[in-house]
Design a protein around this nucleic acid. Structure first.
Lengths: 159, 159
DNA sequence: ATCAATTACGTAAGTGATTACGCAAATTTT
DNA sequence: AAAATTTGCGTAATCACTTACGTAATTGAT
């Protein structure tokens, strides 16, 4: 018995978290299957740098909508793996810019191929859904962005 | 700019996590609004015990679909707050049973009222969705339960 | 030009979960 | 009844973030 699945929206947070972890784990398997030394958690930063070519910590953090310590931590791993390099900015002494290393750039085409396949397959799963998860999440995100939960709550109860 | 929201299914994990954290935070606000000293993270165990009245660690863990250390950690907080009590089982010396304390039982009616209101409001948000998040998540969970990601992946690519 | 405010980054500690490991009690096998 | 297995629980370490705080560099106001 899984009580949570009976609770409806109440315990929904934990449920989403679990689902996201399952998805992440699935990603690991796919990289391993292709014999590529890459982890799903590296994707956001790596992908960002493949698009922007060079960026400071804060720029990445804002782009990915995470905090800057999160970027620092993840990028440390990527740097250790030799996939990215960092160097102090010339224009602004406070900034440290990140970019893909030679090794990172070399790996990029392979990763892009894998990403494309994952994307295709995910798209298929999603499209087979009667209720589309992506759209549903977007709707909820938008609802939340428009009004805070508490505001909504007060309003709903005429307070 | 939020890059993640442009990535489609690829960075979906992080996105779900963020949404779940937003939901949790919303819950905090509501309890605070009612002046009740209760946190969303306590809900699963507390609710479980309000239904089962007395249960061992493993029973709760299975019921909530989390690991037993998670139950131990959360229940420590609840015990510290005086909302639950624990005692060694008479029948089985390995087991430690948890149940609501007097204080916990006294708080229950108030919490139930708040839960009911949260549930009503969430239901309204959900029902206004064109694509229902709850159903969508359930569909994905079921799809995953039926077949592992990698299996699905190999199959999809005819491997 | 100086002083205040802001920005960019770094570190430390906390969070809510997990995996890995170990032990003792109960159950099953033989 | 002894041995092997399973079960229930506890602890420690880890994970991928977060918040809180600090510092140095830049920008803005007067």
């Amino acid at each position: 018995m899984d009580l949570i699945s009976e609770l409806g929206p109440l315990a929904f947070g934990s449920r989403l978290k679990r689902l996201s972890e399952t998805i992440m784990r699935g990603g690991e398997d796919v990289y391993r299957f292709y014999g590529v030394d890459f982890q799903p958690k590296w994707f956001p930063i790596f992908y960002f740098l493949s698009q922007k070519s060079e960026a400071g910590i804060m720029e990445i953090a804002e782009g990915l909508n995470v905090t800057h310590p999160a970027v620092i931590q993840m990028s440390k791993e990527l740097e250790k793996k030799g996939l990215i390099v960092s160097k102090k900015s010339d224009e602004d002494a406070r900034k440290r810019n990140l970019k893909l290393s030679k090794k990172g750039k070399d790996l990029l085409p392979t990763l892009q191929k894998i990403w494309e396949e994952i994307k295709l397959m995910n798209a298929e799963i999603i499209e087979n859904q009667e209720h589309n998860l992506l759209i549903a999440v977007k709707e909820i995100e938008d609802a939340w962005a428009a009004k805070s939960y508490l505001e909504r709550f007060k309003e709903f109860h005429g307070l």
